[in-house]
Write a protein that binds this DNA or RNA. Structure first.
Lengths: 211, 211
DNA sequence: CAGTAGTCTTACTCGCCAGTAGGTACCAGG
DNA sequence: CCTGGTACCTACTGGCGAGTAAGACTACTG
């Protein structure tokens, strides 16, 4: 009975992946509140009770999405950075990895940055956690470069500004996709390492060895 | 705010102000979707039908709030900057004015930055417009300093990064209110004008004449 | 084949909230 | 004292969407 288009019976793990992918798609387009579980289940090609059976409530689903994507992103960045390099090289690798990830996972980035940060509750925790790790990473980089930032607060706020600049530039990039990731990353690198003062004078940062 | 049993009869203009203030308060605490017109009317000390009679629908109310606060903020910044000064001084004044505004209007800032940017529809337009004006302003500053950023795209993306750094640092500041506005502004000024490279070497930017 | 475990569905309930209907107090000017 | 207008209210409707009940289909096991 029924029409031909009946869903096939698939193992739980596969369905969970489909659901998460659909959820990220819908959340990124509509935002947490405007996204409905009906639409997510429809995009996932499954009925709503399955969704609830596998992923729990709407909030749990969202939190799970955030956790998954945040982990993927931090891993992408971590594998791109080698801890023994000079500070500027480390920063450069990190920026490239970051923009690379955003470029290939725009929906994930939107959910992480635009949605998660604005919803209170348990989401902010996941998100703040990831962001905190990123900030600490940068702050460590700064402190390790000695001399400059005296207080912990100062290093942390500078790191927050840098991370924010990256986030914002990534957003800007979403509206100007014609530029390659490397160019955008290099631009931010120049801004935060050289500063406008040097840029105005024509001084540019470039990696120690071109490759 | 209801001391008497019955609300006093007040002219429309006064009520509209009260409603807008209440709306910004509630929107900043709960976000657009979670904020209910019932709560806004309650905070404003008025009944819901009045709210609808004066400010229209929920979306109209929100858009009106954004427009008002965006205008206030851009004016605050514009009056703080003198167009004939050196680029770095202009930037410095702008940053001070910006952080000054945020410090004294935290709720407004939250609505502008965290809420408006995540809701699609007509809000994004208002917001993108203001943000665009800010970015153009900075971009002009950069281009005017000649030599450095060749393409329009480059100047614009750098400006976007700077504006984003400011926004992000303002957010960070909300969680660390113990620092005065001037200190935070100075820190960002150093980051974007000197760059980490100089900061690591202990070179710091400071305004030409203290006052 | 019967039993059981896991997949999957239709068709509801139920609360919340944007928006409204319909009326009441108060104040002009005639 | 009426007449109109503006400020203001209580009490509703109507829809949307989170979450569920109750069962149906499939497949594997003995």
């Amino acid at each position: 009975m029924r029409t031909e288009g009946r869903a096939k019976r698939l193992p739980r793990a596969v369905r969970e992946r489909q659901i998460m992918d659909a959820a990220i798609d819908v959340f990124s387009r509509l935002g947490f509140h405007s996204a409905s579980m009906d639409e997510i289940s429809e995009v996932a090609g499954i009925s709503k009770p399955m969704l609830y059976a596998y992923l729990g409530s709407k909030e749990e689903l969202f939190a799970t999405c955030i956790r998954r994507e945040a982990t993927r992103m931090m891993e992408a960045i971590a594998t791109g950075v080698e801890p023994d390099q000079e500070p500027d090289v480390q920063l450069w690798s990190g920026l490239r990895a970051f923009f690379g990830f955003v470029g290939e996972n725009r929906a994930s980035w939107m959910v992480l940055h635009r949605q998660a940060s604005t919803q209170g509750g348990p989401f902010a925790i996941e998100l703040t956690d990831m962001r905190g790790r990123a900030v600490s990473l940068v702050a460590a980089l700064l402190t390790q470069s000695t001399k400059a930032p005296a207080t912990k607060l100062e290093a942390e706020s500078l790191a927050a500004a840098l991370v924010g600049a990256g986030e914002s530039l990534a957003d800007w990039w979403l509206d100007h996709p014609e530029e390659p990731a490397g160019v955008v990353a290099a631009r931010l690198m120049n801004l935060v390492w050289m500063g406008f003062g040097d840029l105005v004078d024509g001084n540019v940062w470039h990696p120690p060895s071109r490759r």
